[in-house]
């Protein structure tokens, strides 16, 4: 009896904690929005973050995209061959990339690369009192640190996603046509036939939302770091875990709404 009540107690506490955290992230989002519309925007800081989140993630995103497309083509081929429908491999790869894998894998990669870096960077700034120093010098830390990162996330993840979509389809093509011997004309024709503009655009909207999620959570975790170097490590891990989970869960709901 006692143990049961303790368990319920703990469960309740953890639910409360999570709800509270969600609320804090939402409040942070609102304050980011309110600072975003207050000029002057720190353009130099935004571009610096865009370079970090976007340009420097190209390599890892292209690599992920190409191999995902290749694997999908290979797997799809073995499945479709049973029904003599190998010609559908191209459209499967293209639909899979544009709708789901492009946005999700890109944002997961960016989470691992840039989201974690955001948490670590802001976490370090927090524990070395650099964030306090900003406040003291009448420079709002949300405006200086978080707004550029969130803007960079929202703008860059979709651009990375379109690159991932494209190289993924390209990867599928290189496996499908020369290696597996699917007719190249049919491969391309089926892609253009089954993939809609909406598939691509909805995928990009998803990517923008994921970009928001990963940058916001990365910044939130970093911003609220406490406890020295260990705290920074913890914040980084938590940021990656929470952002990845949030991306996957929100992906389900976004898919349910969009398609």
């Amino acid at each position: 009896m006692n143990r049961a009540s303790t368990a319920i107690d703990n469960l309740g506490r953890s639910v409360l904690r999570n709800v509270e955290e969600m609320g804090r992230i939402l409040l942070l989002f609102i304050s980011v929005l309110s600072w975003m519309i207050r000029p002057p925007l720190k353009l130099r800081l935004i571009f610096k973050q865009m370079e970090f989140v976007g340009v420097k993630s190209i390599f890892v995103v292209v690599l992920t995209g190409i191999f995902t497309g290749m694997v999908m083509a290979l797997q799809g081929y073995h499945g479709f061959r049973m029904f003599s429908a190998e010609s559908l491999v191209g459209s499967t790869v293209a639909l899979g990339m544009t709708r789901e894998l492009g946005p999700v894998l890109t944002s997961l990669m960016v989470t691992a690369r840039a989201g974690s870096a955001m948490a670590a960077e802001l976490g370090t700034m927090r524990v070395t009192e650099q964030i306090d120093a900003l406040s003291v010098m009448a420079a709002n830390p949300v405006k200086h640190l978080i707004v550029p990162r969130v803007i960079a996330g929202v703008l860059m993840v979709p651009v990375l996603t379109i690159v991932a979509d494209f190289v993924g389809i390209l990867g599928g093509y290189f496996v499908g046509v020369p290696v597996l011997g699917i007719n190249s004309g049919i491969f391309v024709k089926n892609i253009t036939r089954y993939v809609d503009l909406d598939d691509i655009y909805n995928g990009l909207i998803k990517a923008a939302i994921f970009g928001l999620i990963l940058s916001l959570i990365g910044c939130y975790k970093g911003f609220n770091t406490s406890g020295g170097a260990e705290g920074v490590g913890k914040a980084t891990t938590e940021a990656v875990v929470l952002a990845s989970i949030s991306i996957l869960i929100s992906d389900y709901f976004l898919t349910a709404i969009m398609f």
């Binding site: 379109i162 690159v163 979509d165 494209f166 892609i191 503009l197 598939d199």
Partner: peptide, 14 residues
């Protein structure tokens, strides 16, 4: 580059 790819894909698909 991203916009060019997007434009190309949109054109082909659409």
């Amino acid at each position: 580059v991203g916009l060019i790819i997007l434009g190309y894909m949109s054109f082909r698909v659409g």
